[in-house]
């Protein structure tokens, strides 16, 4: 079963995609001499995964990872805490229109800009260091969490919400009894997922001076010190894996 039932339209679409891909590919000018020259470096990089160097920059790696991990945790906690009121405000079935629009605007702003861009802004505001990173990641977390939370609230069972409202519950009681039980498992699951994302992001925002392991990684790559880069990347992968494993357990537990 094709998606587009009109045959001519389908052909036109296919042709359009093909033409676009050709056009797009033409806009790339690959310097093949440079690529072949770099290939050796590429092989070096891959080889360095077999002999990662954890030792020679162990101090920097340790400090960078510690900073990344602490940034991850604090920013996720702050971000999730802020995303709850904003997510409530962005759910059309419980928030009045002006509040809804305001919260949706915050979400749109936070989601549009890549973390790096936000980091640049906050580094300019509060100076270099992990604080800028924490604010950046918390801000990005708000957009991510609040949007998904709001969608989840909008999908909540309306009869359960109506029933609690009918008892004469106040707004807060209504949220606590009718909405929270319905969205809690997803909220916890998403928070853990975001913890993961924040850790991965914390490994790059260091490039623009917002703290974390990113600065060390950037330096090592620029110095072609691939053995150290490989060590850092391996550690990042390992931590991501561990956190995924852990969050799988927690998710099963809160169902």
């Amino acid at each position: 079963m094709p998606f587009v039932s009109d045959r001519r339209l389908r052909w036109a679409l296919n042709a359009g995609v093909l033409i676009y891909l050709v056009l797009a590919w033409l806009s790339v000018d690959v310097n093949w001499a440079r690529v072949s020259e770099g290939m050796e470096r590429g092989l070096n990089f891959i080889a360095s995964f077999l002999q990662p160097d954890f030792v020679s920059r162990s101090g920097e790696i340790f400090l960078g990872l510690r900073e990344s991990l602490t940034m991850t945790l604090t920013s996720t906690v702050i971000g999730v805490a802020l995303s709850i009121p904003i997510g409530l405000g962005a759910a059309r079935n419980i928030a009045p229109l002006p509040v809804y629009l305001f919260c949706r605007l915050i979400i749109a702003l936070s989601r549009t800009f890549q973390e790096i861009i936000i980091a640049i802004f906050f580094v300019a505001m509060v100076g270099f260091g992990p604080l800028a990173g924490v604010i950046t990641l918390a801000f990005a977390t708000v957009g991510f969490m609040a949007k998904l939370l709001a969608e989840d609230i909008e999908d909540a069972r309306p009869d359960q919400m109506e029933a609690v409202r009918a008892t004469g519950a106040s707004w807060l009681q209504w949220i606590n009894y009718a909405v929270q039980p319905q969205v809690m498992p997803r909220l916890i699951g998403l928070s853990l997922y975001r913890l993961d994302i924040n850790f991965r992001e914390s490994a790059v925002i260091g490039i623009v001076g917002a703290g974390g392991i990113g600065a060390t990684l950037n330096t090592s790559i620029n110095r072609y010190d691939y053995d150290t880069s490989a060590a850092i990347l391996l550690l990042v992968i390992l931590i991501v894996l561990a956190s995924e494993y852990f969050s799988g357990y927690v998710r099963k537990w809160v169902q």
Binding site: Q160, E162, A163, V164, A166, T167, G168, P181, Q182
Partner: peptide, 15 residues
Amino acid sequence: RRQIGMIFQSYALVE
């Protein structure tokens, strides 16, 4: 509202 109890077709228990 608290003087008026309500029972629903879909039971509407908070599951």
